[in-house]
Design a protein around this nucleic acid. Structure first.
Lengths: 225, 225
DNA sequence: GTCTATACCCAGATAGAC
DNA sequence: GTCTATCTGGGTATAGAC
């Protein structure tokens, strides 16, 4: 099964024609939407002729599918790591949110056009809908775990999962895309906003934030090394 | 200026052809998106021929525009009332969120397809983009007011406005449309989630919620009368 | 792997009869 | 106010040469 434990999309050479198609398409999907972007638009952005696209992807929807995999796969994988590692629930949730926002800010493509109900509702995207549902269940299980452990107040988990989704999406939507001005505080702010609302004892937020800051800091230094 | 103080869209007779076009279009826009919905689809849903649509609306985008007005106009108007009336900032924000969610749940059309960047980015929707920006400024001013008054913690107001937007959208997106099963708790839950995150003194949340519950309760009884 | 040429379909909108 | 007929443009995708 796709998007199973340990699964990762294969690496992309962003300078290859295939990689440049994915990059350009992601930007256009984010600006004008999937339906608002024609294969001619994508081809023009890559400076090839429109039929040449079909040498690299069997159909327009395969481009979209590849982008969803690249964005969602690692996110699901990270959440599996959060669920498996030893930490309290507030730390798991805080780090998961902050890391997702962080990853979005540093990845080369623009994921803002990928999660539209009207697009994902198409028959050919059933696998992607299921993957999204899986991610939602992961989030819900963290919220539920935190509640059972007495760390979180008793909001309805399915509602909280929605709210987290909303905060995540809007935080991402704000960005001008990967080329835009990066707001380095956003990962922690988004995580703070959600976790502060959930925590029974809000004094804990400062410690939880420091734990996340440490983990994300390690990440940045290892990437630079 | 459109969407100014006291402005309201004119009432719609939902049984007229024009009203039925708006209703059907809203449902289709929500399911398949603006670009994924053809004028033929809308006409079929209303059981008229496609060219007949153009007797009621000059163009496809005028249908969309009318729906945005119907959804956004009253929302902006309510926020002006919140800003003008005497109450503390937490009550203003809590009531505004709860009322918006409530209104969405009871209005006859489906507003979920209306706030898509790819659609609103079209040249013909400049007025709608400005109205949305106005609404965002209203929300931000409440957040900022609450912070200056010492009611809210010091999150960056522009970020909080985004987060609120996200929670609102996702709460609405969850619903199966006006025909779907209504979740009566959602208005208070959405408002609670946001205000709990912002409040310096979270003990106040219970009182704030009761104030909102009273105001929304009055609303329902007056509608039924 | 990229090209030209083109098939085929469906979109939004208009003309003009009834 | 609704209809039939039709215009015009643009969409995805394929065939086959280079």
């Amino acid at each position: 099964m796709k998007y199973g434990p340990g699964w990762e999309p294969r690496a992309v050479d962003w300078s290859s024609t295939r990689g440049r198609i994915l990059l350009s398409a992601s930007v256009l999907f984010a600006q004008r939407g999937y339906f608002g972007t024609s294969t001619r638009d994508i081809a023009e952005a890559v400076a090839i002729r429109q039929p040449s696209l079909f040498h690299h992807f069997q159909a327009k929807h395969e481009i979209f599918r590849a982008l969803v995999e690249l964005d969602l796969g690692p996110s699901i994988d990270r959440m599996n790591q959060r669920l498996a590692e030893e930490s309290n629930w507030a730390e798991k949730l805080h780090l998961a949110i902050a890391w997702d926002v962080h990853e979005f800010l540093v990845q080369p493509f623009d994921a803002r056009g990928l999660y539209q109900d009207a697009v994902l509702g198409l028959a050919e995207f059933e696998a992607e809908r299921e993957a999204i549902a899986l991610f939602h269940r992961q989030v819900e299980s963290v919220v539920d775990g935190g509640h059972r452990a007495g760390e979180f107040v008793s909001f309805e988990p399915s509602f909280v999962q929605r709210a987290i989704n909303g905060v995540l999406f809007e935080t991402l939507r704000e960005q001008g895309g990967p080329s835009g001005r990066v707001r380095r505080e956003r990962p922690l702010q988004a995580a703070d906003f959600v976790v502060r609302s959930l925590l029974v004892d809000q004094v804990r937020l400062a410690d939880v934030r420091e734990a996340t800051r440490g983990r994300l800091g390690d990440l940045e230094s290892s990437t630079l090394a």
